[in-house]
Write a protein that binds this DNA or RNA. Structure first.
Lengths: 343, 343
DNA sequence: GTGAAAGCGCTAACAT
DNA sequence: ATGTTAGCGCTTTCAC
């Protein structure tokens, strides 16, 4: 039906040139054992006959795929698309393809994705966990078969799988300390599911910063939601209802911080004079929002690149990551107008 | 090395259960011809023995991959990540995987990507052209082999390949007419490479709108660049140097419009009072920028979904797209503060 | 420098 | 309802 002509194989080329399939196979791979002239003849014939390499046959034979699987919560976030861009770059430079799938923040889908990746026999797997993943059992087959598994951003302490992250605790500590330094003492924290390590660590950083500045921690200042635009606005509404307004807000991502800020501004709150606001990630929008948002620069592209490179190193055995368990990338606190209370 | 244990095949299962490989194969596929009890036994044994399906062998045999290739200019734009999210959704619902690669706006890379996709024997290919693609020869092999090829957003009139787009001419016409309606008569247009149809059509829409409102077209009001943040700012700098300021700007994407707006604002220009600004795409940032940006809603997610669905329909022959040559999605003009000159 | 032959694991046509 | 058989196209070991 779809295949208009019969596929040309190395046998067809061999027949035409009075060679064996083995020679053609070697010739196409530029195997130095094959005569230069023969190689050229083979290449020419292949070209002329419209030959195309069959990677299944090759994969089947070689037992590897040169493919890396990636499972992300969602493709359509600034952070993820940057990270994926970095991965694609590193992978394609090393001759690997990427199979990308999204879990839509659901463990059920993540499980299916993992199974598909497993059956597709990816050489390795890169994962950023979904929002609601509790069990890690769907990754067990990879461990069992010795397929390298690497978590990035939303990591887990799962088995011996290494992860690539930033120091979320420290980053949060820094940003909250900065807020305190600007005179805030009544700081709201908006964050995500505490079973995701990144949010837990940020929360801990927040608490520690308060503690170290002898500011009592207050449960009612913490909002745990999915950090979406909607939830950011909802948190703002909730805050506005309170008898006493906070003087600072630290949200665990930029999108949420900004939608929260937008809602507050619409209700006449002055940022940063009334309330200072800080986010996390350094998405492009943080420089578009007014006032510009103080945030943590989380190098997403570099993260993706590093993740893919690390995995590929394991694949080629050029390095053993078995001893390292986490690769911590550098982050930076970026102070902008949204938190500058004093001149 | 990486494979700790020998792979289990259907033959192993067959031997263990005293069945033939064919029965096991059918059983695993839940073929109704196979006895319920047998099917259960097979499933149980497969599970217990740690069997995993070998898709290469299957692909090799079936001559198809259930995989769709996607080539995009860049992954990390709001528009593309939305579109990809839509594709991934449609594809995974139909049991297809996606192989995604980016051309980095270069024809050379696009050509390599196409070759890889071809060798990976994708069942179909979705393409949004790179900025500098001039020749389409790298898609010829797909046509020749009858592999469905579908362009989206950055389309081309290539051969009989259909495309999924919006009516860029009309959208641009509408937005420029709106600017004129707000009192603008001196309207800058910032757009992209004119060999990309989308930008050409937008340019034409701009010209036609001027014409229909008897405003003379002026060459010096047109900026052709790559529509990046940098170029948006550069265009603003250039505009600021001019003796006479324009009273309106229509940029062919939101990112460029917003960076242009930021630079103008920094130089004391009032938006929209001095200059009204409109963008294109309805990226999230268009609601974050101040003033909020007037733009065209380009339904990226739906576009991706429609593209994947259309391709899959062709694959399953459930529809013949050979007659249709373009699927035009609806767009909407979204008027926001950045162009409201009059109350 | 080149060839013969076997086999990777699955599926489908054809049998029974 | 299940089995037999052949073959998808490539790689690789062992020969010469």
């Amino acid at each position: 039906m779809r295949h208009l002509e019969k596929e040309v194989t190395i046998y067809d080329i061999a027949r035409k040139l009075n060679l064996s399939a083995a020679t053609v196979s070697r010739g196409l791979k530029n195997n130095p054992a094959i005569n230069q002239t023969t190689r050229k003849k083979i290449a020419a014939a292949a070209d002329e006959m419209g030959y195309r390499f069959n990677s299944f046959a090759s994969n089947l034979r070689r037992q590897r795929t040169d493919t890396i699987g990636v499972i992300v919560p969602r493709l359509n976030s600034n952070f993820m698309s940057e990270a994926l861009a970095g991965m694609e770059k590193a992978a394609s430079e090393a001759g690997y393809n990427l199979i990308i799938s999204q879990s839509h923040e659901s463990m059920i889908k993540e499980r299916k994705n993992a199974a598909t990746m497993f059956n597709s026999r990816v050489d390795g797997l890169l994962v950023s966990l979904s929002y609601d993943t509790t069990s890690m059992e769907h990754f067990a087959p990879f461990i069992k078969k010795g397929i390298p598994l690497l978590f990035f951003d939303r990591a887990s302490g799962y088995k011996n799988s290494p992860s690539i992250i930033i120091d979320n605790f420290k980053a949060a500590y820094e940003i909250v300390s900065h807020l305190i330094g600007e005179g805030c003492s009544n700081i709201v924290h908006i964050t995500g599911n505490q079973s995701r390590d990144i949010y837990k660590k940020r929360f801990e950083g927040y608490k520690r910063a308060l503690e170290d500045h002898t500011i009592p921690f207050r449960d009612d200042l913490v909002f745990i939601n999915n950090l979406s635009r909607q939830e950011g606005a909802a948190a703002a509404e909730e805050i506005l209802k309170r008898p006493q307004l906070p003087d600072g807000i630290f949200a665990a991502n930029d999108v949420c911080a900004i939608s929260c800020m937008q809602t507050l501004k619409q209700n006449g709150i002055k940022i940063p004079a009334d309330i200072a606001i800080a986010g996390f990630n350094n998405d492009y929008i943080s420089t578009v929002a007014e006032p510009n948002l103080t945030t943590i620069n989380y190098p997403a592209f570099e993260l993706g690149e590093a993740a893919a490179k690390t995995l590929i190193q394991q694949l080629t055995n050029s390095s053993d990551l078995e001893n390292e368990n986490a690769l911590i990338l550098k982050h930076q606190l970026i102070v902008r107008e949204s938190t500058r209370k004093r001149q």
